[in-house]
Design a protein around this nucleic acid. Sequence first.
DNA 1: GTAATACCTAAAGCTGACTTTAGGTCAAGG
DNA 2: CCTTGACCTAAAGTCAGCTTTAGGTATTAC
Lengths: 148, 148
Amino acid sequence: MYTIGQVSEMFNIPISTLRYYDNEGFFPNMQRHSGIRDFSENEIAALRIVECLKSSGLEIKEIKQFMEMTTRGAETYEDRLKLFEARRDAVENEICKLQRTLDMLKYKCWYYEQAIKDGNEDNINAMLPDKLPPKIQKLYDNGNQKAV
Amino acid sequence: MYTIGQVSEMFNIPISTLRYYDNEGFFPNMQRHSGIRDFSENEIAALRIVECLKSSGLEIKEIKQFMEMTTRGAETYEDRLKLFEARRDAVENEICKLQRTLDMLKYKCWYYEQAIKDGNEDNINAMLPDKLPPKIQKLYDNGNQKAV
DNA sequence: GTAATACCTAAAGCTGACTTTAGGTCAAGG
DNA sequence: CCTTGACCTAAAGTCAGCTTTAGGTATTAC
């Protein structure tokens, strides 16, 4: 059993945010003693799922809906599976997108290293769009790919 | 040369957003003819950089500062390099974090597949926290890792 | 016995990133 | 010649996700 202050420290989440989450219904079974919240292992587990769903890009109101599902037991297993599958696919997609962003950023690092050496951007710009050194060309092309 | 409507179509960005970006100073050298914006290859390139910096997690006002730097020429090469290096590191970090999220989501998919087969979560919960099938255990452990 | 600390609520406030509104210009088509 | 469509501006509005404020209770520390 933990107090809100302890959970705040453990997870590095402001107390105000934990109370906000509680108001949103993220801890449907949380107990209280004389008004004070009791975070049990149950709520800790819920919070971990909340963090996971949040970093997968799910909105607060959708997390709320998921928490409602968990209170409805076995009849929502299928829906919950579908939700996690959709989140899994979304995150896989997001990782691909970030990989392209990363390649673009690496290209830009190379670009400015060269510009610093040369004192200007003329040499580099003369190589665009397809006469860059092979490794850099790859970063550049990959970084400029359109989303699928 | 493109009109705002053409750029909007090309990039799938609302016209209102392009005008907002212009007001924020993202196209410092854009020309106009009798009030109407002329997007040249220059602005197209700027927009690509904006998109890249945005998906790296940079805020609008910081993108604005970057655009100011580009207008100050060679004296800001070092600063621009530092910015891109910082963004590169941030995105590498974000990809790692999303990889952990992804493992957690995959674990949850397995979890609900099992729950559907079993009709309840009892068998699975009896395996927690360290008696899961090896592959699943890996996803679970990795997904529960704390950020570095 | 009073002061500091950790908890509580409801409601208002804030920030970022747009988007919508209300009103206007200008060129081409029927 | 008038209406349709694509452009323009400044300013107000929206939405998510918190955070702050104002006011209160309960326990421990000196």
